[in-house]
């Protein structure tokens, strides 16, 4: 256990791993840039305009404006989490890319740190592409909504780290379905995304605030896009910074334990 609570030695070489993933991503950029556009359209039209027609508004805020930041937060979560679970697992286990990299001056710490940074970068890209679509629908306010971009990085690191922890302990690619369905799916629905947490039983509210990091990302995103800032953003940012730091460091140590024997 002791090896899991040491500070990993990460060097600037982590950026080389990040760069490798960027090159691969940009080579198929047309395929990669398309989903965020489509996803924004689909969510806004189906949930925002469809359900929104019946719901009308939540606390005087039009429903579609209320879920726009949730769409951003969910995208941050999905892009980083799935990049650092299934995609990283494929690179680690099937492509043996990590083995090839650590035969060079890169250390396993550098490799995993690069993967985490890349996961967060995917989140930032996703949000950056979605923002103009949401702005075109006139459901977010500028310029405060641009704060969603740095927030996406913080949230991205958090979900990248969470995903990488699961990747480090999963026996195979199939068992990654457990965190995806048992953790990510309920989190998507019960983090104050499509309806306020306040209407849920107290116990579930506690679960959401303590165990679902998406709750805090959604809350912070919403403050930026409405905009409606409150001092509670401090809590959310602190929560995310702490969780992101802990899970990123832990995931590097877990991966080292898995791969360096």
């Amino acid at each position: 256990m002791k090896e899991l609570i040491v500070l990993p030695r990460v060097t600037r070489r982590a950026l080389m791993v990040w760069h490798r993933n960027l090159v691969v991503f940009l080579r198929t950029w047309k395929v990669n840039f398309f989903p965020p556009f489509i996803e924004a359209f689909l969510y806004l039209s189906a949930i925002g305009l469809g359900i929104g027609t019946y719901v009308g508004s939540i606390d005087t805020i039009p429903y579609v404006n209320s879920i726009a930041p949730a769409i951003l937060a969910i995208s941050v979560m999905n892009s980083a989490f799935f990049e650092c679970t299934y995609s990283s697992f494929v690179r680690m286990y099937y492509q043996k890319s990590f083995d090839a990299m650590i035969a060079t001056p890169l250390s396993i710490e550098d490799v995993i740190a690069g993967e985490l940074l890349w996961g967060a970068t995917r989140s930032v890209m996703y949000v950056t592409i979605m923002l103009p679509v949401l702005a075109a629908f006139n459901v977010i306010s500028l310029p405060f909504s641009l704060l969603a971009i740095p927030l996406a990085f913080l949230g991205g690191m958090m979900f990248a780290g969470l995903g990488m922890c699961f990747t480090a302990i999963t026996p195979g690619i199939d068992t990654l379905n457990y965190p995806a369905f048992l953790y990510i799916t309920p989190m998507t629905l019960f983090s104050g995304t499509f309806f306020p947490l306040g209407i849920l039983p107290q116990v579930i509210q506690y679960v959401a605030v303590i165990l679902f990091p998406l709750t805090h990302l959604t809350a912070a995103m919403r403050m930026c896009t409405l905009p409606a800032f409150s001092w509670t953003v401090g809590y959310s940012l602190a929560y995310m910074a702490v969780i992101a730091t802990v899970v990123c460091l832990l995931s590097i140590n877990l991966m080292k334990r898995r791969l360096i024997i």
Binding site: T11, R13, R20, Q95, K96, S97, D99, A100, A103, T104, P105, L106, S107
Partner: peptide, 18 residues
């Protein structure tokens, strides 16, 4: 490790081309 690995060339048993 980094200084040593910078001066080594490694051909692993398993094919791990990208």
């Amino acid at each position: 490790p980094a200084e040593i690995k910078a001066r080594l060339g490694v051909v692993p048993q398993e094919t791990n081309l990208d």
